[in-house]
């Protein structure tokens, strides 16, 4: 049993090499990471960065090439059965028995867990607006996701491991999910949540681990990342655009003009930008979230954190 100071998740030099014929793929390299009790930890990285590999290692679905993982003070491999009793897991792509109803799946998982609080299960069902009477094959991807969340949460686990949990959820349900995760945290339980969407992680996580090319690039608080966060803005004006128009506007950088279009990088609020445009006729405004790589480089590109810089991330968020 872990005491209060023991990290809920502790990995030491955790590595995984996949062999595909004569090829070897280093999916995860020397991951050393601590996640503390009562925090929501975001595990951020582009597709193929090694997020799912890390989760599969923690759940003993795959075995490490090197290193170890300790969860709730127990060895992820040797104590896997006891650990799984205390963990809730949602895979990135949830597959279930298509000819069973949602209720039958819940019942089977509940019996494998040795029983659950059915009142709590019913509360979850209502809250997630999930209909358990239908067969799995007839559920939409969003409803399948709800069923997965229900299965992960139903035993009130001490540790929730969620792989891309909001995939397929509509915005309203994402909000409900965020509320649920905050409640889990308020109860002193821990959430390890992987995502490739920065905004999702920013909205609920306390700390974020950034993974790229199988290596942990950084672990930061969300507040720090938020400071580095920016977006790309494209403005279409009625008149021919001039970069001088926005020169010196707080938060505006990398300004380029092409005919009546201005492109810029904006950090912080929109108000200074809109204020500077008050005499212009703005036809259109488009914003685009910055890629994880861009934010990462933006943050680590300056001198103070240069020693933490590692390989750049390869995909856009």
């Amino acid at each position: 049993m872990a005491n209060h100071n023991t990290p809920v998740i502790q990995t030491e030099s955790l590595s995984k090499v996949y062999k595909a014929g004569k090829r070897t793929i280093q999916a995860l390299s020397n991951l050393t990471l601590s996640v503390h009790r009562g925090e929501i930890f975001g595990y951020l990285g582009p597709n193929g960065a090694g997020k799912t590999t890390t989760i599969r290692l923690m759940l003993d679905l795959i075995r490490p090439t090197n290193g170890s993982a300790t969860l709730l003070g127990m060895d992820a491999q040797k104590d896997s059965v006891e650990l799984h009793r205390r963990i809730g897991f949602l895979p990135a792509e949830l597959s279930l028995w298509k000819n069973l109803t949602g209720r039958q799946v819940i019942d089977y998982v509940a019996r494998l867990r040795g029983g659950v609080d059915w009142q709590y299960v019913n509360e979850l069902t209502e809250r997630l607006q999930f209909d358990p009477t239908l067969r799995v094959r007839s559920y939409s991807s969003g409803n399948r996701r709800k069923l997965g969340l229900l299965l992960a949460l139903m035993n009130k686990p001490e540790l929730l491991i969620l792989d891309e949990p909001t995939n397929g959820l509509d915005p309203l349900m994402q909000q409900i999910f965020n509320d649920m995760m905050r409640e889990v945290r308020a109860e002193g339980r821990t959430v390890f949540l992987s995502s490739h969407i920065l905004s999702e992680v920013q909205s609920i996580c306390d700390r974020v681990g950034i993974l790229g090319s199988g290596k942990l690039q950084a672990v930061e608080t969300v507040a720090t990342l938020r400071h580095a966060d920016f977006r790309w803005v494209t403005l279409r004006l009625h008149e021919v655009a001039n970069t001088q128009l926005l020169a010196g506007v707080p938060g505006v950088a990398d300004l380029t003009a092409d005919s009546s279009t201005l492109k810029l990088r904006l950090r912080g609020d929109f108000n200074p930008l809109l204020h500077a445009l008050k005499d212009q006729y703005v036809v259109d405004i488009k914003t685009e979230e910055a890629s994880l790589e861009e934010i990462f480089l933006s943050y680590y590109g300056n001198g103070s954190n240069a020693n933490k810089t590692a390989e750049p991330l390869k995909e856009r968020v």
């Binding site: 599969r56 059965v81 963990i87 897991f89 895979p91 279930l96 494998l112 299965l151």
Partner: peptide, 14 residues
């Protein structure tokens, strides 16, 4: 092959 085994083996069953 379907990925269902991931869900099963993440439950408390050897």
């Amino acid at each position: 092959d379907d990925g269902i085994l991931d869900v099963v083996l993440a439950l408390p069953i050897p």
